[in-house]
Amino acid sequence: MSPPTAHESVFRAWLAEYGGIIAKVTRSYAHSVPEAEDLRQEILLQLWTSMPSFRQESSPSTWIYRVCLNTAMSWLRGDGRRRRRIEPRADLSEMPEPSASPADAAGSKDLLDQLYGAIHAMPEFDRALVLLTLDGFPYRDIADITGITENHVGVALTRARKRLAELLKGATHELE
């Protein structure tokens, strides 16, 4: 087996460090486990092929989010025919859960499933905004990733958060 190239080494390091971004975007845009796997492969392929164009003008996480979201949104609307060919065999909540310590796993999982359910019901661009906000990106980075001006990120975010809150209303009641 040939030794890993520099490209491959960086890619492995990125996957280890930022694999969570791919998992979150995949789960937010795909509707079933086979779809999620298909989208994940597509995202990995796009990251792999686009990596040489990374110029370190932004942080790797910002750049990776941009590639992931662009790929997911194109996949969502452009590859409808291919998506229809994928049989929905299992619900996304049955995906192997990446989360955390067993102590609060059950409660977190419920809330996380509800959160993903609400994100799924949102328009594709609002999903991107919600993902970026939940991951704590500042307005400047969100503006960089989405292309809307920094001044208006706040307006768009308020609208997206309001939608999310409405969608989570029922769930909130249950949780409280």
């Binding site: 996957l15 280890a16 969570g20 990446p98």
Partner: peptide, 15 residues
């Protein structure tokens, strides 16, 4: 809850 999601294990094996 969102930030407590850890990256899936074994991602590097995909390369």
């Amino acid at each position: 809850v969102w930030k407590r999601q850890a990256p899936p294990a074994g991602a590097s094996a995909d390369v």
